[in-house]
Design a protein around this nucleic acid. Structure first.
Lengths: 149, 149
DNA sequence: TCATAAAATTGAATAATATTCAACTATTTA
DNA sequence: TAAATAGTTGAATATTATTCAATTTTATGA
């Protein structure tokens, strides 16, 4: 056994997939060359960013999911995007949004369990510029990435 | 012109994609038949739920993105999943989570613009059982669905 | 309005890829 | 330790994506 699975998951997580042109052609009832042309165009225009797999995260040791509401220090109001870009690099973070309202930033984070999240919190989230955070823990994920679980 | 694009986007949004076995095989340096076997196994076990495209949502008229924090009426504490499942059906909703803390539910919603969101709010979110909501509007999306924008 | 250019659609041919299958190896079970 | 099960792999086949050239449609400018 070569633990192929463990090496596949991270790749499929962010890419290494492709549209099924033949199936789309059959569904939409147009020639596959037409589908091909239109998809390549959307890729070239940057409309399509990636093709990826969606997992049942409980089954890949990523069952702990939280939303992190972040309040920035006034020093950072001018350039929240630098912190956002820094955070976005981490593979545990599913999404990073700069927001209005009581909180300046919203993260969605996935880890193995609460302990792994605590480690992540200390290592990544605790940094200069972030003055307050609030964690909302997901007890049950009903839909993710537009896919019903 | 047949507006192929408009018909492709909703399909690619939730599926109609497939893993690139040859590319994965090259990357991982294992035979493609081994990759194939392992992927089919993950699909059969329900580890992989779907293969889908990720879009630059501004470019498909879905540029308005919000997080909706929902507070349920005490009547519904016992069975928040029915409301969650109802909400999850709507294609505007990217994710539905049942949470701990001050709010019982978290939605991520995408619409064309603020007006479309307002309509959606009145039509879908306003319902018996939901007693309070708070909307956090995303001003800038840095990362979505594990994909950098 | 009409000529011209650019963009989009399409069928046929080809190239690339996924899938099947049978043999083999490694791992688990009793 | 034997037998059963699960995982790996190369070769053959089936399916699918891609290229290309021809054609149609749409946009542009005098």
């Amino acid at each position: 056994m070569k633990d192929i699975k463990e090496r596949l998951v991270p790749l499929l997580h962010e890419g290494y997939c492709t549209p099924q042109i033949a199936r789309l052609a059959q569904k939409i009832k147009e020639p596959s060359t037409t589908i091909h042309y239109n998809i390549k165009k959307m890729e070239a225009l940057g409309i399509i960013k990636a093709y990826k797999a969606v997992f049942d995260y409980k089954k890949i040791e990523q069952g702990f999911c939280v939303f992190v509401l972040i309040s920035l220090s006034p020093d950072e109001y001018g350039d929240p995007e630098r912190i956002a870009a820094e955070l976005a690099k981490h593979s545990e973070i599913e999404s990073v949004d700069i927001c209005t309202g009581d909180w300046e930033m919203m993260l969605k984070v996935r880890t193995r369990d609460q302990e792994a999240y605590y480690t992540f919190l200390r290592k990544v989230i605790s940094r200069r510029g972030i003055v307050k955070i609030k964690t909302l823990t997901s007890l049950k994920q009903v839909k993710t990435e537009f896919v019903l679980l």
